[in-house]
Nucleic acid binder design. Sequence first.
DNA 1: CTGTCAAATGTCATTGACTGTCATACCGTG
DNA 2: CACGGTATGACAGTCAATGACATTTGACAG
Lengths: 236, 236
Amino acid sequence: MSVTDSIGRMEEFPVLGERGAGERGVVEERRERKKRQTREALVRAALELFDVKGYEHTAVREITDAVDVSERTFFRYFANKEDLAVSFARDWTDAMIAALAGRPAGEEPLAAMRAAFRESLLTLAVDEGTGAGAPTYLLVTRLIDSTPSLLAQHLRYVHDRDEEIVGLLAAREGVDPAVDPRPRVLAAVFGGLIFLATRAWRTEGSTTAEQMLAAFDRYADEFTPALFGHWGAGAV
Amino acid sequence: MSVTDSIGRMEEFPVLGERGAGERGVVEERRERKKRQTREALVRAALELFDVKGYEHTAVREITDAVDVSERTFFRYFANKEDLAVSFARDWTDAMIAALAGRPAGEEPLAAMRAAFRESLLTLAVDEGTGAGAPTYLLVTRLIDSTPSLLAQHLRYVHDRDEEIVGLLAAREGVDPAVDPRPRVLAAVFGGLIFLATRAWRTEGSTTAEQMLAAFDRYADEFTPALFGHWGAGAV
DNA sequence: CTGTCAAATGTCATTGACTGTCATACCGTG
DNA sequence: CACGGTATGACAGTCAATGACATTTGACAG
């Protein structure tokens, strides 16, 4: 009867952004900081191991040994092994949705989606100071794409958050998402664009955020006219 | 290093349909028949238990005890517990794709999708002679929808088969799916329609195939004009 | 009917993910 | 320093899944 099941993510640690000024980080006792350090150490060690040995062939034990914490502690930070593996991708998705929510009301939907995607990439890029190996988002997208169970988890997460995107798009056009199906169509298009862009970017051997944006734009340019082609007209 | 991992389904047993006349079902040695019986008994017992106790709270052991086979045998029939749970939904998806592949070439895409959906429902309805409890597809859709890990598995399966749908739609319009994005948009719409229809049908308390078709039609009628609204025009 | 071969199933042992429980170490506070 | 709460560790146990090997069973030849 697990509590952390419906979403598969633990309570919530402060994630990304939010550190612009010294807002309240002054107090922030060692406790909090240490927890975040442990969490990040676990993620780093895990991604490294996953990359080398593969997800399934990496035991939780190996991850915790690398960070020198107990196995039990691992499961206090992450609901399960998959949770850790997809946590980065979820942060990315969250960032995209947050960015979309922040776009000005007047903007055309597709322009807003484009901008949101760009912003989310920039947010993540901050994290990439460590020029050790491949950027994290490359590692993670490869990992998820090549591991069935992780792909499944990730698809479910995106599926869950889709309702929010629909709501945002509906709100910015001032329509009721329960009645007007257009926001839903746009959300599907948004998801499809991101998926295609990510895949293309990766299979082309690209590694930078700029290349990824370019891939997104390329597909976006193709999709828009496609929505107004003649197919389906009169099909009803 | 499991072999049954990329799709998560075992070899393949003869599934649904194909029993119209006495084509070859006559021969079918005891061996084959017994295997199918065992498999079906496992599915029935499992769905029953899942419905009563919930998926996570049902041990494989309990299922095999109910059918009186060893736990090891269970895993010779199904790649894993999830595999069994979603097998019915996958058969349904397969039937839909097969039906779509069989639609005449001249048909409008949306009409073809509608017809394919209808055909798949009819195929499954054959199975529902056992008026014991709720129809299987009701049990299964509820189960999948209320169990995170099953939803994830199912989304991944659908995601995998999506490429096929794209290919079919592209072929029937004679375009290259790698270049023309329209079939991909349509496939996304198809998936969305089915999802919405299934959910609406279930939350409305409907139980018959006719009601489900009605729900599908209702959404389809809404979607088509939505594709040709003014949103996004000039957004590029 | 009997013997033989292969497929199906059972038995056993093991790994690995995950959970509950309780003890202990740690840190900020009075 | 004592106190109280929180993070962690230690340990035992459950359950899914797999490999290895023994046993049974059905198909078929003689």
